[in-house]
Design a protein around this nucleic acid. Sequence first.
DNA 1: AACAATATTTAACAATAGTTAACGAGGAAT
DNA 2: ATTCCTCGTTAACTATTGTTAAATATTGTT
Lengths: 232, 232
Amino acid sequence: MNSSNKTKILLAEDDPNLGIVLKEYLELKGHDVTLCTDGEACSIAYFESTDFDLLILDVMMPKKDGFTLAAEIRKTDKRIPIIFLTAKSMNKDILKGFKVGGDDYMTKPFSMEELQMRMNAVLRRVQIQTGTNGTYKIGEYEFEYDQQLLKYKEDQNKLTTKEAELLKLLCSNLNQLVTRETALNKIWGEDDYFKGRSMDVFIAKIRKYLNNDPAVELMNVHGTGFKLMVKS
Amino acid sequence: MNSSNKTKILLAEDDPNLGIVLKEYLELKGHDVTLCTDGEACSIAYFESTDFDLLILDVMMPKKDGFTLAAEIRKTDKRIPIIFLTAKSMNKDILKGFKVGGDDYMTKPFSMEELQMRMNAVLRRVQIQTGTNGTYKIGEYEFEYDQQLLKYKEDQNKLTTKEAELLKLLCSNLNQLVTRETALNKIWGEDDYFKGRSMDVFIAKIRKYLNNDPAVELMNVHGTGFKLMVKS
DNA sequence: AACAATATTTAACAATAGTTAACGAGGAAT
DNA sequence: ATTCCTCGTTAACTATTGTTAAATATTGTT
């Protein structure tokens, strides 16, 4: 979940009418919507930011279709919910949407209410463990990203901005790999040797914060990245 | 996930034709299905067992409708995935299904394939959430891939990433040949002479870890590959 | 048996990661 | 304006992980 308590939605829809109507409806419902009108713009928007909570992708789009885009994103993020929108109700298409790692699939025309409901259903799953306002549970710890606060029982640590950003990225991929590349691009904005060393220093700091709870482990995957594991 | 490797599904459907067809299809797909023909029977089945992985509930059922049943279950279990089936595509109904805590909603008639896909999508989420992808038994050993941990009685060894990946590949082909080519391509990404030598070094390391239990043998098939054998 | 190909093992080496501390830019306090 | 403080970066050193090399052993073929 991103810093505000709004759900941050990345919406890709090339039909300008539908795009704008959707954006306005979702904003009315209290969400924060970024609208892209083609697949490439959407790809760029996604990979530059760390804090989208949900993707809504039209399948048929200029430059890059929704399935291709979703497949790319699923390579680096298995968690973020993806809902596809499509005009044609071709059976094969639906199956492809799921195969590529989508969470739901809606055929136009659909009611806004149903979209809202399906969004909630899919978000409820990820929010069961990420509190609703930027609060993450990490074993016995509680991490308030908004306040940059990491709490363990009575103790609490104030994190720096970079520490908090990195920990948030790890939390939103809990039990899953975050590649060095992803982290560097999303948090440092570039991926070079020195930024990489800098990240290692932050990883060490976060480990130190987290070593009260033995069920929590921030582990390295050699040559690839890190994953924050919580044994259950 | 329950103890077996099958997905345990509780299916409630009062139409006997559809019920039986669904059950048979899902069993064909390797799942373990319990079929109930009314809401009360389903409620009893659910509350008597602990290890269902997924509920598929018809909405219109004798004695207790699917929504009421789901609402009851959601009081005690917020996690278990619920998919509703319904004949009528009334908008209000769909909304009610989600309000009551459903994860997906399918309108009859639907294709079996789409049901399968939607099941997978919903199950994938809970797997990701719990980080429970792989624990293998190897004779007296227990291998937790997620934690890169190999346990033998009281002892436990922390494996490196490569060791864990290779052991996982061997485990998922227990008692079966894994060709050098397969292993090299899957784990090293390419199949050349030096990667091959490197793999041999890892095989040696894994053998060393596994030599407490005489029933376990990581054997070579000359010129072809390796087999992880467990005698019983 | 002699030979060639493949596999095992140990050690040296290279690349990646972990840790601690020094450094420097920028903001806040004096 | 000067000093102090915080934070991110860089540096230096150590540890871990994975690859290459080299010496030995095993297997299959002629």
